[in-house]
Design a protein around this nucleic acid. Sequence first.
DNA 1: TTATGGTGCGTTTGAGCGGG
DNA 2: CCCGCTCAAACGCACCATAA
Length: 212
Amino acid sequence: MAAPHRTRQPAELEMIGGKGTRQRCWEAIRARRDGFTLLDIAHKAAADIATTKTYLQALEKGGFIEVGNRERGGHDEKHYRLAKDNGLEAPRLTRDGQPVTQGRAQEQMWRTMRIMGGDFNYQELAALASTSEVAVSPVAARDYLKHLAHAGYVTVVAQGKGRGAGGVANRYRFNPGRYSGPRPPMVQRTKSVYDPNLGRVVWQEEADHDDL
DNA sequence: TTATGGTGCGTTTGAGCGGG
DNA sequence: CCCGCTCAAACGCACCATAA
């Protein structure tokens, strides 16, 4: 918005209302599915022109939008229209229009934990969250659980008693009351946990000031 | 000792932005 | 309009601590 961001910023600063730039663009597109231009979307989504253009290119290559008639006159402004409505969530695409697999692991773990209900360790979570398309590694599950436990999304039911040959891993349990939405909480580089559903940082390394 | 869990660091990939 | 650079998040590996 008013911030003259020249490059990428941490998630909590880049997200506006918990929505990324592409999400806002996608919503603007769906609002004007009949016909829209680059500037139209960029203005409505409060996004940078170049960034909007990049996403429109990806959407076009992915077949989500189509180029319609050009603007009358000498302007080179393209008129797009929505070709494939993928729902509320903005399609995550690479620059070539290919679907993005990154981030799916956490999304699947987040969803799996909410469904399973009982207690589990990281290996069980990794196995259950893995699909034929996206495999969730035990390491990823372990790391994700650690941060979710700090943020209070999961509770340690049984501490990892014993290390060694007969070691038992920590057993966690998901707190249903902490389910904030479909978007999985993300672990930021600063070792803090940001919840895109709530649109704010829910845990930081030192201060645990916030409590439901 | 060895094996296993936990924690930290490095690499890879995607997203934003500017220039040609 | 297309290509490249930069930065942050996700993924993965390596090291450390500890119990059998």
